[in-house]
Amino acid sequence: MSTSTEPTPVALEVRGLCRTFGDHKAVDDVGFTLPPGGSLGIVGESGSGKTTTARMLVGLETPDAGSITVDGHERAHRPRTRAERLARAREIQMVFQDPYLSLDPRITVHDSIDEVLRLHAPEADRPGRAARLAELLDQVGLGTREAGALPRRLSGGQRQRVAIARALAASPRVLILDEAVAALDVSIQAQILDLLARIRREQGIGYLFVSHDLAVVRHITDDVVVLRNGRIVESGRTADVLSAPQHPYTRLLIDSVPGVGWDPERIAENRRALAAPEA
């Protein structure tokens, strides 16, 4: 999917992304594309480089090499002006993993969304902003009661809804969800997945879904990239990769998901076999 040269529309294109910490290659020649309104899963375990990749995309880390383009605009270097900074923010937004740490504890739900609207649409007047805010809250299933609340009065699921609404407030082309449902209880996780699927359907926003959880990735993404030790080991349509994995590591990941016929001993064996040639 990343090598096709046909004029298929591309929202996000990443090529040859590299990042080294000390002598550790965290991300090594990672590339992929995301069509407008598409959903791409980035799957890996801790140390796979998936989070570093996500952080480079939103500008929290600077890549050593490679290019990141959104609608053809390059964004690998640091923004220089305020206008550039804001334009960047409207390209990619992110929802973080921990709903308990990703909201300013002093700022109410209403204000934390409203300040994004003020920043990105300063021309809008007060009633205009209020209408947009109500729309955003409604989209993520929060009521006026929650709007007036401080984050600590909200449950994990509610906070994650706030984080999503806040990210959507900048009307980004691409939304990065960095383990965005990993910290939630399953029953709540399903609510948020449901919500995300609906938002994508209605708004045509592209998702980059960073996760360790293959089962979740299967339900929320069209395409998937499997990362291991900073490198892509396999990529393709999510359904194909999960039903007929080509790389032994992908197979190991799939086998590791607990379920019927789960055999930890065999998984351990495969894992050792996979690690052996590198050690």
Binding site: S155, D185, S187, A190, D194, D213, A215, H219, I254, G259
Partner: peptide, 23 residues
Amino acid sequence: ALLASTPRLEADAAAPQPIPGRP
């Protein structure tokens, strides 16, 4: 409901069904 809300890997599995409300 908990079983139905758990995402499953199998190819033919239904999408996870949310449980409304919260604990």
